[in-house]
């Protein structure tokens, strides 16, 4: 075969492949542009509500308690904790840790205590309310908790607002798993 024919084949092939690759890339890029335009036009007028933002990072109180506490008994036991303050709750957790096989690491005690304290809140409101409380400006948060704690049957003593505030801080600091 002649050399020039080889060279010609090579040129044709390189040129052809370049054109074809370009074609495929153009199709993909056009599709990207089309999709992006579509998505932009689909954006809702309203920005996310506070509730939407709150749902983004739930405090996962139930998750903490389910992992460590409801293996041996149901959460009905927690009713006993109603009205208890931080020291009594810590004492209970300590007792649970002494049950054989309970496997509750000491590093989580603070967190469990916080979760147990606010557990009462989600019994009425659901987990979403916790994030909403966290998003409030500090003075609003204090006022809100104070109002709730004063309600009859709240399950809290009126002097527990400070404990509750600290519990929220503990839960918010909580590293993601």
């Amino acid at each position: 075969m002649a050399k020039s024919s080889n060279a010609r084949m090579g040129t044709f092939a390189v040129f052809g492949v370049a054109v074809l690759v370009n074609l495929v890339l153009s199709i993909f890029l056009l599709d990207q542009v089309r999709r992006t335009r579509q998505e932009v036009s689909d954006l809702s007028r309203e920005l996310a509500s506070k509730q939407d933002v709150a749902m983004l990072r739930p405090l996962r109180v139930n998750e903490i308690l389910e992992r460590r506490c409801t293996r041996c008994h149901t959460d009905q036991r927690f009713a006993k904790l109603t009205g208890m303050g931080r020291p009594e709750i810590l004492e209970t957790i300590q007792r649970m840790r002494e049950h054989p096989g309970s496997n509750i690491p000491s590093s989580e005690v603070r967190e469990i205590q916080a979760a147990l304290l606010v557990f009462r809140c989600i019994a009425c409101h659901g987990e979403g309310v916790l994030s909403q409380i966290v998003l409030m400006p500090p003075e609003d948060r204090v006022r809100f908790l104070r109002d709730k704690v004063r309600m009859p049957d709240s399950g809290f003593r009126t002097d527990q607002v400070g404990e509750l505030l600290r519990a929220f801080e503990t839960l918010v600091d909580r590293p993601k798993n």
Partner: peptide, 12 residues
Amino acid sequence: LVPLALFSIPDV
């Protein structure tokens, strides 16, 4: 794409 280009060349 490369085989497509190659097959399309009469010399090939």
